Each structure stands twice: as C-alpha cells, then as structure tokens.
Measured scan of single mutants.
Amino acid sequence: KRYRAVYDYSAADEDEVSFQDGDTIVNVQQIDDGWMYGTVERTGDTGMLPANYVEAI
C-alpha cells in the first residue's frame, strides 16, 4: 500500500521515521490503531510512523 504524508513528522524515537508533508510512504503495514510501518520513498528511511499523519493514495 502507498500513503501520502499530510503533515510533517519528526521521529521521536530511533525506530520511527521522519517525513514531510507530501512525501510518499511505501510498503506500509498497519501495526495497531495508531501506528504503521513503512518506507519514506524520498529518503529511503524505514520505520514506524503515526497513522493519523498519512492518507491512502
């Protein structure tokens, strides 16, 4: 699945990823209600991200 960031996010922990509004997130997997795991296409960084900061595309 592919998602697009709708807000900027700065990683708060080493297992999270930072991204900017408009970034595409690929290979996304749902972890639980609030978190997903995926790769930021622009940077190649992979990690956890907050589900409410992205939307499906």
Rank of each mutant, 00 (worst) to 15 (best):
1 K>M: 13
2 R>P: 06
2 R>G: 06
2 R>K: 12
3 Y>S: 00
4 R>T: 07
4 R>I: 09
4 R>P: 00
4 R>M: 08
4 R>D: 00
5 A>C: 08
5 A>I: 02
6 V>T: 09
6 V>F: 08
6 V>Q: 07
6 V>K: 13
7 Y>E: 08
8 D>K: 10
8 D>Q: 10
9 Y>N: 02
9 Y>V: 01
11 A>V: 02
11 A>K: 08
12 A>E: 11
12 A>T: 12
12 A>L: 13
13 D>F: 12
13 D>G: 15
13 D>H: 15
14 E>P: 13
15 D>M: 13
15 D>G: 15
16 E>Q: 14
17 V>S: 02
18 S>F: 03
18 S>K: 01
18 S>R: 03
18 S>L: 01
19 F>M: 06
19 F>A: 01
20 Q>C: 14
20 Q>D: 07
20 Q>H: 11
21 D>Q: 15
21 D>I: 15
21 D>H: 15
21 D>W: 15
22 G>N: 06
22 G>C: 05
23 D>M: 03
23 D>H: 02
23 D>K: 03
23 D>Y: 03
24 T>K: 06
26 V>W: 08
26 V>G: 06
26 V>M: 09
26 V>I: 14
27 N>W: 09
27 N>R: 09
28 V>L: 07
28 V>P: 05
29 Q>L: 13
30 Q>I: 14
31 I>P: 04
31 I>F: 10
31 I>M: 12
31 I>G: 08
32 D>M: 13
32 D>I: 13
33 D>F: 10
33 D>A: 12
34 G>E: 15
34 G>M: 15
36 M>V: 10
36 M>C: 07
36 M>D: 01
36 M>L: 14
37 Y>L: 12
38 G>P: 02
38 G>S: 00
38 G>M: 02
38 G>L: 03
39 T>S: 05
39 T>P: 01
39 T>I: 06
39 T>V: 07
40 V>F: 02
41 E>R: 05
41 E>G: 04
42 R>C: 05
42 R>L: 04
42 R>H: 06
43 T>L: 02
43 T>D: 02
43 T>Q: 01
44 G>R: 06
44 G>Q: 07
45 D>T: 08
45 D>R: 12
45 D>G: 07
45 D>N: 10
47 G>W: 02
48 M>D: 03
48 M>R: 15
48 M>Y: 14
49 L>C: 04
49 L>R: 01
50 P>T: 03
50 P>G: 03
50 P>K: 08
51 A>Q: 07
51 A>T: 10
52 N>S: 13
52 N>G: 12
52 N>K: 13
53 Y>C: 11
53 Y>E: 03
53 Y>H: 09
54 V>T: 04
54 V>C: 04
54 V>L: 11
55 E>A: 10
55 E>T: 12
55 E>W: 07
55 E>Q: 12
55 E>I: 14
55 E>D: 07
57 I>S: 06
57 I>C: 10
57 I>K: 06
57 I>D: 08
57 I>L: 11
57 I>M: 11
57 I>V: 10
